[in-house]
Amino acid sequence: MTEIIDGNAVASEIRSEISGCVETLTEAGVTPGLATVLMSDDPASETYVSMKQQDCEEVGINGIHVEIEPDAPSEELFETIDRLNDDPEVHGILVQLPVPDHVDKRAVIRAIDPAKDVDGFHPENVGRLVAGDARFKPCTPHGVQKLLEAYEIDTEGADAVVVGRSDIVGKPLANLLIQKAPQGNATTTVCHSRTDDLAAKTSTADIVIAAAGVPELIDGSMLKEGATVIDVGVNRVDADTDKGYKLVGDVDYESAKSVAGAITPVPGGVGPMTRAMLLYNTVAAASDHHDIEIELP
């Protein structure tokens, strides 16, 4: 029987423990603060930021939201980041990507104080992650690790294939999986759009993590019997529904489920974990800044 990995349930448990950490900080006179900055009129981005703010309210984090018109000068965004960097009530800063074309995305990431970079994208934090001394693990890769831990899926000595090489998921996750640390020690292969014969790589893997952004790229015929399948992809495809579309992952769920030993659904798998780990990083940032000891999950 294939085990369905329930990201909603694991994320709920983590949020509950984070709430306890927030109480500890509050009793010490510190309320963790997360600032979200939106410079877009994309409905998906607006919804995602709104959900993050709701998450903050749920666990007791002070949510600060700033909206900037998409056609505003880039200087307005950088001035906002500078102000939030200097604000002692703000412990984490998240600029919702993508930003408009006239704004340099890499410059935006570099402008955020590394100690408040709860996405873990600043070059300093990327370097620390690669060196095995992470200040913040990027939210989605960290969430994947927590799912594997919750379902007692051992990565040590396992053959893992990461399909996707983005700065947000593929690269940091591959780095985490190879590290000499819990939820690490895997023999890890990174595949991508230029990989020849992708099925030859995935079909021998104990763990397959799909993060290529291609709808249903991987099906059951490309998997080893009993493999663990973590589907990071969230893609809209046309469908005969009220909305005119449905959400699918990078994995053909039905065919993969008949082969996999454990699999994440879409939605309800990795997505809730990404949001939970953002709260985790914000609380960790507040704890580090004020040198208050807490026990994060």
Rank of each mutant, 00 (worst) to 15 (best):
T264M: 03
I218V: 09
D252V: 02
A44F: 04
A227R: 05
V161R: 11
P138A: 02
N62W: 00
V248M: 05
S258V: 01
Y280V: 07
A260Y: 10
D250S: 08
D117T: 03
R135V: 12
T47Y: 02
H192S: 13
G226R: 02
L223S: 05
H290Y: 07
L279C: 08
G244W: 05
M277C: 14
G63N: 01
K52V: 04
V234A: 11
D71M: 06
V118R: 07
P123A: 06
G271H: 04
T26V: 11
D6M: 03
L223R: 08
A186M: 12
Q179N: 05
E216I: 00
A212C: 05
L217E: 10
D86L: 03
I178P: 00
E124H: 08
G7M: 04
H142V: 02
L97N: 11
D71I: 03
N62E: 13
I230H: 06
E295L: 04
F121L: 15
E76T: 13
H65A: 14
V30T: 14
G92H: 03
N281P: 11
V190G: 11
L217M: 15
I18V: 15
L94M: 14
G127P: 02
L176Q: 14
G261M: 06
S193W: 07
N125Q: 01
P172T: 09
V266L: 10
G184V: 07
A200F: 00
M1L: 10
A28R: 13
M51V: 12
Y151M: 01
T195I: 11
P265G: 03
H142D: 13
K201M: 12
D291Y: 03
E27I: 06
C56T: 04
A284N: 12
